[in-house]
Every structure is written in structure tokens, then in C-alpha cells.
Simulated scan of single mutants.
Amino acid sequence: MRALRISLIVLGIVVVLFVVADRVALYITQGEVASRARGSLGLSEEPDVSIKGFPFLTQVAGQNLDKVTLGLDEYEALVDGETVMVTDLDLELRDTELSGGYSDAVASEASGSGVISYDALTDAYGELLGSENNGFGATFEYADGGLLLVNLQVRAMGQSLNVGSVTCEMVLEGNSITMEIVEENIPESIPGGEAIVREELETERTISELPDGLSLSSVEPTAEGIVLSVQGADVNLT
């Protein structure tokens, strides 16, 4: 009986030591992944990293990580060269193969999403539209049914005047977005009327400077902002 008790105590100690070693190794590895991901994905800062699954050491021994999540509070992308802030960018990398003495890590699949606020979208588009000196401007907000409400403005004597609104659908092709007008309510007070509104809103705009290896898979207006979904394959973390 005493021998059994001693064996159980020893087993308990071994289990505790294994768990401690597993968590320490996990903590160190997550820091290393964050550092490498910053460079390999072209990030401006180190992301928050979480490697899922327990125990961690058995995943390392098998040279495969089931799931790794990366998170950034803010990320700067570009819309036709104008900076736009993407917030709450969360990425999930699956089936990450380790090789080269664990110095190389490639995820077979990656996906994630982030949000562009309507204020950020208005700022970016405001710079694009304002650079064309056509007296036209716009602000953005959410419309029901997953559509975008565009409030039209004209600029006169240094002032921006709201003159009406149109509802648009956001159409994605590659990494380019077009706002297609689905409800026409274009006021006559805009210089050039319908032609100028359609030309400016339905111009294809390219979103660039996404994390390396990822491309847009969908864009969806929501109450919180424009949700950008991204995906990629064979994403290198090193």
C-alpha cells in the first residue's frame, strides 16, 4: 500500500513537471512565433499569438501545430494608395508544418477578418475624392440588408453640404472593390449629376498592403463597419 502511495506521488510529480514544461515551452514558442510573424507577414508590430491544443510538446514532436491564432488591434492597409486603418484583425492558421530543425513553419491554410470603420472609410475616400477637385464628396454608414449607405456632398466655399444619399452594394473582384449603386436617388444639385456620382462611386478601388500571403475573400458592410475577410494557403511564418 505504501509502495502504491509512493508511486502515485511520483506519478503526480511527473505529471506536474510535464505540464509545467509544456506551458513554459508554449510560452517561449508563442513569443518566437510573434517575432517571426511580424517579419514574414509584413506586420508593423508583433501580434498576439495563441497556439491551440494540449499538450503542446506532442505537437512539436510531431512537427505539426493544429491551430495558431494571431491578433492585432490595428493594421494599416491601403485603398488606392491612401492609408486606411483595419481594426481587430484576427488570423487563424491551420495545419502548420515545422521543418528545418523547427526553424521553418508553413501553414497550409489561413483565414481571418478585420474591420474598417465607416469613419476610416470616409477619411480614405475623402482623400481620394478630394484629390480630384470635382466638388464631390461622400460619407459612409451602414444600410440594412448588408448594404452601404453613401451620403453625398458637394463642396462650395470651403464647406461640405449634404445633398442626398444612395445605397450601394460592395462588389469584390480579387483585391479590388467597386461600390455598385442599387438605389438611385441622385440629387440634381450635384454638378454633373448621375454621371459624376457613378464615375466616382463605381470606380474600382484596390486594397493593398494586406499581410503577406493573404488576399481578400469577402467584404461585408455591417453595423460595426466594413468586415474584410482574408484567406491564404501555404503561408510562411518564418
Results as ranks from 00 to 15, higher is better:
residue 216 L to G: 03
residue 110 A to F: 03
residue 181 I to R: 01
residue 76 E to L: 06
residue 46 E to I: 01
residue 44 S to H: 05
residue 100 G to A: 07
residue 62 G to K: 11
residue 55 P to S: 03
residue 31 G to R: 09
residue 143 A to F: 04
residue 175 N to H: 05
residue 203 T to G: 07
residue 33 V to D: 06
residue 155 R to M: 06
residue 27 Y to D: 12
residue 154 V to N: 03
residue 202 E to C: 10
residue 125 Y to E: 05
residue 83 T to F: 05
residue 235 V to D: 02
residue 168 C to V: 12
residue 201 L to E: 11
residue 207 I to F: 14
residue 179 M to H: 08
residue 156 A to I: 07
residue 181 I to H: 02
residue 138 A to R: 04
residue 16 V to F: 14
residue 92 E to Y: 03
residue 98 L to T: 04
residue 115 V to S: 07
residue 103 S to M: 07
residue 28 I to A: 14
residue 36 R to W: 01
residue 112 G to I: 10
residue 72 L to P: 06
residue 98 L to M: 07
residue 153 Q to C: 06
residue 65 L to H: 04
residue 73 D to G: 03
residue 140 F to E: 10
residue 127 E to V: 07
residue 40 S to C: 10
residue 47 P to I: 09
residue 198 R to G: 12
residue 91 L to H: 03
residue 93 L to T: 10
residue 136 F to Y: 09
residue 183 E to I: 04
residue 50 S to I: 11
residue 113 S to R: 11
residue 69 T to A: 04
residue 214 L to P: 06
residue 106 V to N: 02
residue 118 Y to T: 10
residue 128 L to Q: 02
residue 213 G to V: 12
residue 32 E to G: 02
residue 64 N to P: 00
residue 190 I to C: 03
residue 140 F to Y: 15
residue 123 D to R: 14
residue 10 V to R: 09
residue 228 L to H: 12
residue 157 M to F: 11
residue 47 P to Y: 08
residue 230 V to R: 09
residue 136 F to K: 02
residue 70 L to G: 09
residue 4 L to I: 13
residue 237 L to E: 11
residue 134 N to H: 04
residue 67 K to V: 15
residue 54 F to W: 13
residue 138 A to F: 01
residue 107 A to S: 11
residue 32 E to F: 08
residue 10 V to K: 07
residue 91 L to P: 07
residue 65 L to K: 02
residue 164 G to F: 12
residue 7 S to K: 09
residue 103 S to C: 00
residue 95 D to W: 02
residue 9 I to V: 15
residue 214 L to H: 10
residue 127 E to Q: 09
residue 147 L to W: 00
residue 126 G to S: 02
residue 115 V to Y: 05
residue 199 E to C: 00
residue 119 D to M: 04
residue 131 S to D: 13
residue 26 L to H: 10
residue 135 G to H: 11
residue 15 V to F: 13
residue 38 R to V: 03
residue 203 T to P: 00
residue 37 A to F: 04
residue 229 S to M: 02
residue 211 P to D: 13
residue 118 Y to H: 10
residue 4 L to W: 11
residue 219 V to S: 05
residue 165 S to A: 15
residue 79 V to Y: 06
residue 21 A to F: 05
residue 185 N to S: 15
residue 142 Y to A: 13
residue 167 T to N: 09
residue 60 V to C: 01
residue 190 I to S: 03
residue 216 L to D: 01
residue 99 S to V: 06
residue 140 F to V: 13
residue 156 A to W: 01
residue 28 I to V: 15
residue 157 M to D: 15
residue 170 M to A: 14
residue 177 I to E: 01
residue 66 D to C: 00
residue 93 L to I: 08
